[in-house]
């Protein structure tokens, strides 16, 4: 575990942010099972330390683009729980007024370019946002979250080349969660993903993606490089997708593709459980203090569900061309 001199407040803030994601997604897992939401959801459970560690380094003027597994990034960057929940419920009060759904939650006012249904889709967009940051010269950075699956898209090679060549303030955060959809990463990926930075001369680091403090520190170094004009960094965060590729996948998959012992071993390294222990062991908070936060997050989620359920669906009788063009 990474060393830390974090204040009690900082620690609890990181904890709260991770727990918010966890509670939202546990609710969505239940909603998916019960048929309360119309589309597919790809859950981030087990990976929260990556989004929270990185986004805690960012402000609203920094850009992030994310993935189909994007609720965590949205929430960690300051997206509102109730607006996300209403969006996934397909309601008119959602952050995208029901036009986008789970895979497209975005809030540009908070620098969230959005989740993305195309694996690797956010990589080029982030590179362009990084170009904008460089030209604006306002110290902002652009962060692309993507998975190990997306690392096998050609766009990553193009993006590493051009962003290094142009010294763009970009952070590429590859969350290696062990699976490329339904295929274990090692069956579809040659070599180490982090090494893909090396031929371009791009700065790169691996980090324990279940250690929020280690991620925080890694992101801090990358941000510093970016904002002082030293160009991009590729971070490979090793973590684990505790859930399936998509909720309810067991209903359509013909065979099991996961090892239950592997799941158990990673659940025992759950980033939130580890962080709880660390906070309590260091005497930075009592278990009761953490329970207060947990209850507050549950209340926030319950309020968000109620808000979503009470919200109307978008009116199909309205102007269907609205939002196509400005």
């Amino acid at each position: 575990m990474a060393d830390t001199n974090f204040s009690n407040d900082q620690m609890l803030k990181l904890y709260e942010s991770m727990l918010r994601i966890r509670k939202v997604e546990e609710q969505l897992a239940k909603d998916s099972k019960e048929g309360n939401i119309p589309g597919a959801v790809h859950l981030y459970i087990g990976q929260e330390a990556v989004a929270v560690g990185v986004c805690s380094q960012l402000s609203d003027k920094d850009w992030i683009a994310s993935t189909h597994r994007g609720h965590g990034h949205f929430l960690a960057k300051g997206g509102e729980t109730r607006l996300l929940m209403a969006e996934v419920y397909g309601r008119d009060t959602g952050i995208c007024r029901g036009r986008g759904g789970s895979m497209h939650v975005a809030d540009f006012s908070k620098g969230i370019i959005g989740a993305n249904g195309i694996v690797g889709g956010g990589i080029s967009i982030t590179t362009g946002a990084g170009l904008a940051s460089k030209l604006t010269n306002d110290g902002s950075v652009a962060v692309a979250f993507f998975g190990d699956g997306a690392a096998n898209q050609g766009v990553l090679a193009e993006a590493l080349n051009i962003s290094t060549l142009w010294q763009l303030p970009v952070i590429f955060v590859c969350e290696n969660n062990g699976f490329s959809e339904f295929s274990p990463t090692n069956t579809v990926t040659a070599g180490n993903i982090v090494d893909r930075a090396k031929p371009y001369g791009t700065a790169c680091e691996t980090v324990d993606g279940n250690d929020v403090i280690a991620v925080w520190q890694c992101a801090e170094r990358a941000k510093l490089r970016a904002s002082r004009g030293d160009g991009p960094t590729l971070i490979e965060a090793h973590t684990y997708r505790q859930r399936g590729h998509v909720e309810a996948e067991a209903s359509f998959l013909s065979k099991n593709y996961r090892d239950s012992q592997e799941i158990e071993s990673w659940v025992s390294k759950d980033p939130i459980t580890l962080f709880e222990k660390r906070i309590v062991d260091a005497g930075q908070a009592k278990i009761e203090d953490l329970q207060v936060i947990s209850r507050a997050m549950e209340a926030e989620v319950n309020e968000a569900v109620e808000f979503a359920e009470k919200s109307p669906y978008p009116d199909p009788g309205g102007n269907e061309q609205q939002y196509m063009f400005t």
Partner: peptide, 17 residues
């Protein structure tokens, strides 16, 4: 690198250019 270029246009435009 047309693949990254076309997406960079989206990112730069989204960021105000």
């Amino acid at each position: 690198s047309e693949t990254v270029m076309s997406g960079m246009a989206v990112g730069a435009a989204a960021a105000g250019f």
